[in-house]
Amino acid sequence: MRRAVCAVLLAWVALAMPSRADTYPSRPITVIVPFAAGGPSDAMMRILAEHMKRTLGQPVLVENVTGAGGSIGVGRAVRSKPDGYTVSFGHLGTHVANGAVYRLGYDLVADLEPVVLLPSNPMIIVSKTNVPAKSLPELVAWLKSQSNPASAGTAGNGSGSHIAGLYFEQVTGIKLQYVPYRGTGPAMNDLVGGQIDLIVDQTSNAIGQVRAGTIRAYAVTDAKRLDSAPDIPTTDEAGLPGFHMTLWSGLWLPKGTAGEIVTTLNAAAVAALNDPAVKNQLNNLGLQMPSPNQLTPEALGTLQRQEIAKWWPIIRAAGVVPE
């Protein structure tokens, strides 16, 4: 009899107490950005975090955890408690390509819960200013004329900038000498300084330097010109038809996170993306906003699986291995 009474009391207490998901969030949330501070991923997430903290009522902190093409930072998020307080920021490189490059110790699909698709970057082909080429055909001709492969900066093997470089090699028949960095922010610094020759980079990372005249832009890897840089031609217009690549980003949580928490974070991110001031900041970075029907967790999960099917064969055929 006593056991039955205790069981009833415990059940009543459990029902009376709010669930952890109901009170979420009750403390600061950390978003792990797996690249160096100052780069395009870091800039995007900090803009979104500033708005999300107002919706969530708690600080949203950005932690930069670099190394191994972003796989170290993603791994830390995967192994964290599934309580909604550690979020994984990533993109095509970290949450697709790394699965074909590294022995991760985790599964990019099975061990993560998609939250929301974030703005995307078409890539942009840029060089240091003392490269003599003024157009994309001239750049291709100059690259082919070099006795040694030109140096191309990347954020590491399997990163978006590396995949874009491999794709560029495949389309043009050119060989490049890749120089890996801990993010495209540091790579851009060296491009401006003339230490490397070119980057096929995220538009958001390069557009400020293009506008300042410290690097030269040749084309964006999309079918349409950027609203924020309408003077830069597309690859179709510039002489490489079909050379399209978009570096999309997203947020994920560890597998097993409560659905209510996923919904809460999704709503906070969507509110940020719909804010006119945030849209303006992201547009100035050359970012493209997802359409409304792309903003569900399910849409991000579907896109991730489709991109794995597209890019893994290309990466594996190129024999990409960790640095």
Rank of each mutant, 00 (worst) to 15 (best):
S127M: 02
Y24S: 00
S291G: 15
G93P: 08
V321L: 07
E113S: 12
A77S: 14
M123P: 05
G193S: 12
G259S: 14
G301Q: 11
M44D: 00
T263I: 00
A187N: 10
G239T: 05
G156C: 09
V171H: 13
L112H: 05
A318V: 07
P132R: 11
K81Y: 06
A271P: 06
P132F: 05
A37Q: 06
T184L: 03
Q294R: 15
Q209D: 09
L143Y: 14
D107Y: 04
W311S: 02
Q170N: 14
A318E: 11
L92T: 12
G208N: 12
G38M: 04
A49I: 02
S204A: 15
S145G: 13
I29Y: 02
R46I: 05
G73Q: 01
E323M: 08
R2A: 12
G239R: 05
L251Q: 11
V320C: 06
G73E: 02
I207N: 10
A14C: 04
I163P: 04
K175D: 15
G160R: 07
A267E: 04
M123F: 12
R79S: 11
K128T: 13
E169G: 11
H244C: 02
G158I: 06
V115G: 08
P313W: 03
L226K: 10
G90F: 02
M188G: 06
S135P: 12
V116Y: 05
G239Q: 09
L176A: 11
A223D: 15
A223I: 13
I314M: 10
S291Q: 15
N283Q: 14
S228E: 03
F168S: 09
D83M: 02
T296Q: 10
L198E: 08
S249P: 06
S204T: 01
A268E: 00
S204F: 00
K53D: 08
A37P: 00
N274R: 14
A77P: 05
P186H: 06
W252L: 01
F35S: 14
T86D: 09
V87I: 13
I232T: 08
S127E: 07
N266C: 00
N189T: 12
F35M: 02
V262Q: 02
D42I: 00
N293L: 01
L108M: 13
A299T: 09
A77Q: 08
